[in-house]
């Protein structure tokens, strides 16, 4: 897992329009009552994807089954810290996200899961969302090193947070392995803290 270099991800897209989409919408809390992430894909946008009778409505996730790149707007993933949200997206099939901006904890969680999150301007993102509506089978490719999103004839010069980019490209997004090798230094730091030593 730790040797997993992620330089490019691609596939068809799914637009998930809306600003400030919070994690309660992405993965409603009542579906967090499981001790594994295995079934999370079934609960992704559970309420938004269903009409009053519980039948699938025309939510993009229902219309763009099989997509790999989610395209979202501003402050996506705000609210709770639940990793269930990006886990659900990943297990549904999302390998990368493009958006105007992401809530920090959400972006952090994406990094821990090896999902690149690219930001781009409002115009670029909405253009891509419209393009997906017109080209449901169209390929979108995220190049992590170049920080670009390529689709049809278009290239978005996007932005990927430096730490995320390094982590993905160098295959060091598994922070447990990274930090585990420093355990003796951790002991040293902890040992200097008065509240730790006074225990």
């Amino acid at each position: 897992m730790s040797e997993n270099h992620i330089t490019e991800v691609g596939g068809t897209g799914v637009p998930i329009p809306g600003d400030d989409i919070d994690t309660d919408q992405i993965l409603p809390a009542r579906f967090m009552k499981e001790v594994t992430f295995d079934n999370m894909a079934d609960y992704l946008f559970y309420d938004a994807r269903r009409d009053a009778d519980g039948e699938f409505n025309d939510h993009p996730l229902n219309r763009f089954e099989g997509a790999s790149i989610a395209v979202v707007n501003t402050n996506f993933g705000c609210g709770s810290s639940r990793e269930h949200a990006p886990q659900a997206m990943m297990r549904w099939g999302v390998d990368g996200v493009v958006g105007e901006s992401f809530a920090e904890i959400f972006a952090d969680n994406c990094k821990s899961l090896g999902i690149p999150a690219v930001t781009a301007s409002h115009e670029e993102v909405t253009h891509l969302q419209e393009w997906i509506e017109d080209n449901p089978d169209g390929e979108i490719e995220i190049d992590v090193e170049e920080e670009t999103v390529t689709y049809g004839e278009n290239v978005i010069e996007g932005e990927i947070d430096d730490a995320m980019k390094e982590a993905l490209v160098d295959g060091i997004w598994d922070t447990t392995t990274l930090m585990y090798s420093n355990l003796s230094k951790v002991e040293e730091t902890a040992g200097k803290l008065p509240y730790v030593t006074s225990d």
């Binding site: 992430f37 810290s81 990006p86 904890i105 952090d108 969680n109 922070t175 930090m179 951790v186």
Partner: peptide
């Protein structure tokens, strides 16, 4: 506030 992968990090490495 942290996600589950970071909880794993804390448990494993503090």
């Amino acid at each position: 506030g942290v996600g589950t992968s970071q909880i794993r990090d804390i448990l494993a490495t503090g």
